[in-house]
């Protein structure tokens, strides 16, 4: 495991919010046409409800994020990916389904702090207002100039993910937006 190095391994910025680069995160992209059978089998395998559009469901260290009408992102411990891929193969034999390891393709950050929505609103065009973005929601939008997904995990905590090559950029723009003195007080703190 010592060979494994997640992007920006352990980087952290404390400002208006705290920005932390998370350690290696197991991730599987699942693409399949959604059917009742698919929902039932997948929920059965994962022990997670099937997420509604633009939502995430999670339990412990596993989460299932709705990415598009035929795409989900399964989050799980990094080491469990090969076994999970095998179990997916068993659960969906001969299905038209794409299940692929993308654990190394995306970087994840935890953002926490009361002015979370204000800090994100400096960079994200999508509506970050409490009425439009509630815990459990996943928004795919832009973070300044790059694509990013934001999973609101609690009233003051979000998990943000982007492609790993732009992790450094994402961290820097987040840190800039979270720089003290830049309080906006728009979404209320």
């Amino acid at each position: 495991m010592s060979d494994v190095m997640a992007p920006l391994d352990g980087a952290r910025f404390d400002g208006l919010v705290t920005v932390e680069a998370l350690p290696a995160q197991g991730q599987i992209t699942l693409r399949c046409e959604v059917s009742d059978d698919y929902r039932a089998k997948l929920s059965g395998l994962l022990g997670l409800a099937f997420p509604e559009p633009r939502k995430a469901v999670s339990d412990g260290d596993r989460a299932l994020l709705w990415m598009s009408p035929d795409e989900l992102l399964l989050l799980l411990p990094y080491d469990e990916v090969p076994e999970m891929l095998a179990r997916l193969e068993e659960t969906f034999p001969n299905w038209i389904l794409l299940a692929v390891d993308v654990s190394d393709a995306r970087a994840h950050f935890r953002l926490s702090g009361a002015p979370l929505r204000d800090v994100l609103s400096k960079l994200v065009p999508a509506d970050m207002a409490p009425g439009a973005f509630v815990p459990g929601d996943v928004k795919r939008s832009k973070l300044a100039q790059v694509a990013a997904g934001i999973w609101l995990r609690g009233p003051e905590e979000a998990q943000l993910f982007c492609f790993r090559s732009v992790a450094d950029y994402a961290f820097r723009v987040l840190a800039t937006a979270a720089e003290p003195g830049g309080e906006v007080g728009f979404h209320g703190t």
Binding site: P53, R54, P69, D127, R140, S141, K142
Partner: peptide, 11 residues
């Protein structure tokens, strides 16, 4: 119409 989100032109 695919995901239901309101998309800004820059998205």
């Amino acid at each position: 119409p695919c995901c239901g989100a309101d998309a800004a032109e820059i998205e």
